[in-house]
Simulated scan of single mutants.
Amino acid sequence: MRRGEEFQAAIKRGKRAGRPTLVAHLSVSGDEAPRVGFVVSRAVGGAVVRNKVKRRLRHLMRDRLDRLPRGSLLVVRANPPAASARSEHLAAELDLALDRLLRRRESATDGHR
């Protein structure tokens, strides 16, 4: 995801799940392939640290893309503790956030059947 409108759509209209190291926003509409964007602010660290965090998150999301429904816009925002978090911890936090978002989405769609 690269366009500001997509980031805004996911953040404003989507569901949110927060963890100490990251916050995930998920919005689902349409039928295109899922897209993911990352937000790593200066609060996380300098440019080298921010890029490292972004690369780690991108790598972790590659294995989890198949969990997202078609039409998904997912924004993963790193919090400052992400800079010093071990990869295993970051992966666990990402899984917890995704589980919460996807479980909420399933329960919301179950009520409309």
Rank of each mutant, 00 (worst) to 15 (best):
74 L>N: 10
56 R>Y: 02
80 P>M: 11
54 K>L: 09
84 S>R: 15
89 H>R: 11
6 E>Y: 11
71 G>N: 13
57 L>C: 10
91 A>H: 03
30 G>H: 12
82 A>G: 12
80 P>E: 15
68 L>S: 06
75 V>I: 11
63 D>Y: 03
4 G>L: 08
46 G>I: 00
109 T>G: 03
31 D>Y: 09
28 V>K: 08
83 A>L: 07
104 R>P: 01
20 P>V: 10
111 G>C: 05
100 R>I: 03
10 A>N: 11
13 R>H: 11
19 R>K: 14
52 K>I: 01
5 E>M: 00
87 S>Q: 10
23 V>S: 04
67 R>G: 05
55 R>C: 06
77 R>W: 03
50 R>D: 11
79 N>S: 11
83 A>E: 10
38 F>A: 04
39 V>Y: 10
61 M>F: 12
2 R>D: 08
39 V>A: 03
77 R>C: 02
27 S>D: 07
50 R>A: 02
79 N>M: 09
8 Q>M: 09
50 R>E: 11
49 V>N: 14
30 G>T: 15
60 L>T: 01
82 A>R: 02
77 R>G: 00
76 V>P: 00
63 D>W: 04
71 G>K: 15
53 V>M: 09
6 E>G: 06
91 A>L: 05
104 R>I: 09
57 L>M: 06
20 P>I: 12
98 L>C: 12
89 H>A: 06
